[in-house]
Design a protein around this nucleic acid. Structure first.
Lengths: 221, 221
DNA sequence: TAGATTGTTAATCGATTAACAATC
DNA sequence: TAGATTGTTAATCGATTAACAATC
């Protein structure tokens, strides 16, 4: 009776609605920037252009409670979100494809905030082999097996061109990778026990193009 | 009576549900790869792990019809999607921030397929000024005004660190930019007539981390 | 034509929002 | 305490799915 939401913890993992998960990531981004100690659902909502009820509902999925009359204790809420996303647990990831994007990711310093460490970058182009991406030397794909075992890698990042993405994914799965972070602009086919997160960077701009053509302000092209 | 869906074209722009727009982008990605002449809703659905009814419903929003008993004529459907997203109309965009990511985007050859041309990349770091990103020289932000007018730029790409993202955005809006493509890992505040598309690359991996911890396969960390 | 597949209407489901009780 | 804000239940809304009519 004290905390009814405990029941959600009972049988099996709770499934978060996809939209809720996306918003929880936005709260996570927003709260990292906040300097004050408490924040209300009203304020979060205003900054994200959503409804405060939505914020309260989303947060009710978490193993966390706010304080009536005061709001949400920011650092505790961030902790709850970190727990949800496992940002305090480190995952070693690998990058396949040492083009501009692959190297940019290998150089990104912010991954540490999300519990991610890039342990290797691969490419089969002889031109790229042996060159550096940040502190990592570009390795040939024959080293895949060794690296995946050694660092217990679960997540593989696809930064190869669209044409070679599928066969790269097939290889990674064969080598034991469980989740694919896909930056290639193609749809991948994977077994149903394999997770895929698509980050089709260039195609994401199409939403802006679409809306620019249909928004009063953007109408004038 | 011939084509009831014409009514959708009548009063003002049709609003596509956000989820539908996202799926239409996936169809766009999938169909580009298809070699055959026709494809069925069944096949599209299977490749995307969704329901065929969903596919038919989504496509019914478009100014396009399939052929009963045959399926969708792929190239015509791609045309309809290109029309929806305006990929045949060129938008000139600029990139602010000539770090690894900004330069990777400036070097990306695939934008032409989406009707995007990067016309300039900016940075105020004296170390970066004058260096090259692909064929573009890194310019100082004082040139912003001139470039935006000269190339009629509507979309600004934010590749600066989180700390400077908001003030960069404020500046762009003052200079007349109508849409922000945001790669900084922060929530931006903009007037309501300004469009924002968030591409929080690193944070997107949190979905995989979350699911890996909750999926039978991924459970063993 | 008969059969297969689209397109659309209606039913269902799930997510959002409103209302209000709980509470500090 | 009174008032403000959370948390939760119920109502509403919108999106998905099912069913089936249209059609090539």
């Amino acid at each position: 009776m004290k905390n009814m939401s405990v029941k959600k913890k009972r049988n099996g993992p709770i499934m978060f609605p996809k939209a809720t998960l996306e918003r929880l990531k936005m709260y996570h981004a927003l709260l990292q920037e906040e300097k004050s100690e408490y924040i209300s659902s009203e304020e979060i909502a205003r900054k994200l252009s959503i409804k405060p009820e939505q914020v309260r509902k989303d947060i009710s999925y978490l193993d966390y409670s706010g304080k009536p009359k005061v709001g949400y204790h920011i650092s505790s809420l961030v902790d709850a979100l970190d727990e949800l996303f496992g940002t305090k647990l480190r995952d070693n990831i690998i990058i396949i494809g040492a083009g501009h994007l692959g190297k940019a990711l290998a150089n990104y310093k912010g991954f540490v905030n999300f519990g991610i460490r890039v342990v290797a970058i691969f490419d089969n182009d002889p031109e790229k082999l042996g060159t550096y991406a940040g502190e990592l030397v570009v390795l040939p794909l024959k080293d895949l097996d060794r690296v995946i075992r050694r660092f217990n890698v679960k997540i593989g990042t696809i930064c190869v061109p669209g044409e070679s993405a599928q066969k790269t994914v097939d290889l990674l799965i064969k080598k034991g990778i469980k989740a694919i972070w896909n930056f290639a602009p193609v749809i991948l086919e994977v077994p149903e026990n394999i997770l895929v997160e698509n980050m089709d960077i260039a195609r994401s701009v199409l939403t802006l193009k679409h809306l620019l053509d249909r928004t009063p302000t953007g109408k004038i092209r």
